[in-house]
């Protein structure tokens, strides 16, 4: 039962990582790619860690896995803002949808 739950969580996590990567490849500019990477990978990582945590041998080991999430989030959120700010400072104009 727990194994199936773990499997389902891991599959959901893999889906979000895939979606984030698809966004990175398909989106038109640096800003849109940041949206895809930051938001989708955040969820991908969260679900993968949850999936691993339910299989952990002890409570402490499960918490240790879950602790990775806020640490990576803090780093990726900060880096995402830094990249966007730098791109803006360099004068990179956001891609706009052409009028239909």
């Amino acid at each position: 039962m727990l194994e199936w739950l773990s499997l389902a969580l891991l599959a959901v996590g893999a889906f979000f990582f895939l979606a984030g990567t698809v966004g990175l490849l398909r989106f038109p500019d640096v800003y849109c790619r940041l949206h895809a990477l930051a938001k989708a990978d955040n969820l991908g990582l969260g679900f993968i860690l949850l999936g691993l945590a339910v299989q952990a041998d002890s409570l402490a080991a499960a918490l240790k896995l879950l602790l990775i999430w806020p640490l990576v989030l803090a780093a990726s959120a900060g880096v995402g803002f830094a990249i966007a700010r730098r791109a803006h400072a360099l004068g990179i104009a956001p891609w706009r949808k052409e009028a239909e």
């Binding site: 938001k39 995402g80 803002f81 700010r85 791109a87």
Partner: peptide, 11 residues
């Protein structure tokens, strides 16, 4: 903000 729906902070 970068993790919330639809937005990324730029400046």
């Amino acid at each position: 903000l970068g993790l919330m729906p639809g937005s990324v902070g730029v400046d």
